[in-house]
């Protein structure tokens, strides 16, 4: 088992998929990170030496990802609500924020627009 950013991954897990499992790391950020540490795209966690894992963890801890990024998002929405803005209210009501119609088709807005938005 290998610890990456506080999560225990099985050794046969691909580095790419382990990194992309964190909120805020998509294909682009992942490619940049892997290039910086000279990890090839098909590498598995077992193939990386401990020193590289340490420096990767160090780098990840400096980035705003996962819970930090989620908290940042929640704070921003909460700020909008607290100042009583239209966008804040719409978020709180679970309705579209940017002028979309509400007669039909507001499923995505209902799903996502919350103060504790999931991501």
């Amino acid at each position: 088992m290998v610890f990456v950013f506080g999560i225990n991954f099985p050794e046969k897990k691909m580095v790419k998929s382990a990194l992309q499992s964190f909120y805020g790391i998509g294909p682009n950020v992942c490619t940049t990170l892997m290039a910086r540490f000279s990890i090839h795209p098909t590498a598995r966690l077992a193939q990386i030496n401990a020193a590289t894992i340490d420096s990767l963890n160090n780098e990840l801890s400096k980035m705003t990802i996962d819970n930090d990024l989620r908290r940042q998002l929640h704070d921003r929405i909460r700020r909008l609500r607290d100042m009583g803005s239209y966008r804040g209210r719409r978020h709180a009501m679970g309705l579209p924020v940017r002028g979309q119609r509400t007669r039909t088709q507001t499923t995505t807005a209902k799903k996502l627009n919350k103060i504790e938005r999931r991501g």
């Binding site: 000279s38 990890i39 090839h40 098909t42």
Partner: peptide, 8 residues
């Protein structure tokens, strides 16, 4: 083809 490990 980047299927084997490399190191600078």
């Amino acid at each position: 083809n980047a299927h084997t490990e490399y190191a600078p």
